[in-house]
Design a protein around this nucleic acid. Sequence first.
DNA 1: TGATAGACGTAGCGGTCGCTACATAGCAGG
DNA 2: CCTGCTATGTAGCGACCGCTACGTCTATCA
Lengths: 188, 188
Amino acid sequence: MLVREHRREAAIERMADHLLAQGLGAATLRPLAAAAGISDRMLLYYFADKEEILAATLTRIAARMIAELDHAVPPARRRAFPALLKEVWAALESESLAQYMHLWLDLAASAARGQRPHRDIAGVIADGFLAWVESRLRGATPERRARSAALLLAVIEGMLFLDAVGRRAIADDATIELGALARLHDLA
Amino acid sequence: MLVREHRREAAIERMADHLLAQGLGAATLRPLAAAAGISDRMLLYYFADKEEILAATLTRIAARMIAELDHAVPPARRRAFPALLKEVWAALESESLAQYMHLWLDLAASAARGQRPHRDIAGVIADGFLAWVESRLRGATPERRARSAALLLAVIEGMLFLDAVGRRAIADDATIELGALARLHDLA
DNA sequence: TGATAGACGTAGCGGTCGCTACATAGCAGG
DNA sequence: CCTGCTATGTAGCGACCGCTACGTCTATCA
């Protein structure tokens, strides 16, 4: 039914807000239902089970994240490695994107434990993130660009990790060092 | 009492095994007590509350991790950046150290949510890890060595992250790229 | 008009959570 | 012998978990 589809859709949007604000640990039926403004019974009427709820909501969140990233770092031009690194890191520290990063960390942790559907969704998000970086990165050949993007992604995620444990200073040192290395290489 | 201290100690050791095998998500009183071979009542007799249990167990695990790292990558000599990166990454893929890395990811995720005592402990572990890397890294000056160590740590943790979400290929690309950059710099 | 199917709420299932009250058993000191 | 402390088990509290049985109301269609 159309009504059903529409309400399901609205529920996903509001559950996405809830998950972003509260984290994966708060992904339990009753709070999710309350956030969606319906009863937990109706939530399980719209979705088969908790797994389906999470899959739909996380997929929605992934789409939103890419949109937010596009907004923060527009694809207008390609950047040199150090510049893009700096720009992306600055964007990720903004309040709105930080929420995504925290959830992304939750997701990685539960993916490491082999949880479904977390593992699959997290993998797809990583691919999307990599493609996103690659499309904004300057590089001599597509191959070099792909590897540079992989490095940038890895470093960003390591810095995220370090920031999460309260060691932003280490993350900043890493940026400085990597920026220096990359600039040196560009001169070469 | 001595008996009490001894049993508390033994409980910590066995709970550390349990936590490493099962993850932070399995850190609930009854399973922990079962792993320690005592009743949950006695667990709360030896420790004030769950937080104290976790703090003691995680601290023990951190000490074990450093010992395992020392064993896998002995401190005999300092390594060049690409060599150390490769060596550390290979070590972390071993079954025993992979357990620590998964738990480390759990810890980072809950630290990002501001959980205590997770955040503090995770920070201390990161510092220990950084010092560990620094002591094994070759570098012209202590300052350069510190920044190189920060970069190596960030990259390792980003690769851990990518591996967790099933994207080891991206992690490998990052290694290749960073190794190339660092070697080029050493020549310069 | 009456049967059918969709939409929704209530109440509750069996289970786990962190934590605690209570009882007891052993042993030390007065 | 009594008192009181340490050590330990049992049994349970109230909250929350994912999920479901069941009933009711309403809209549609023959």
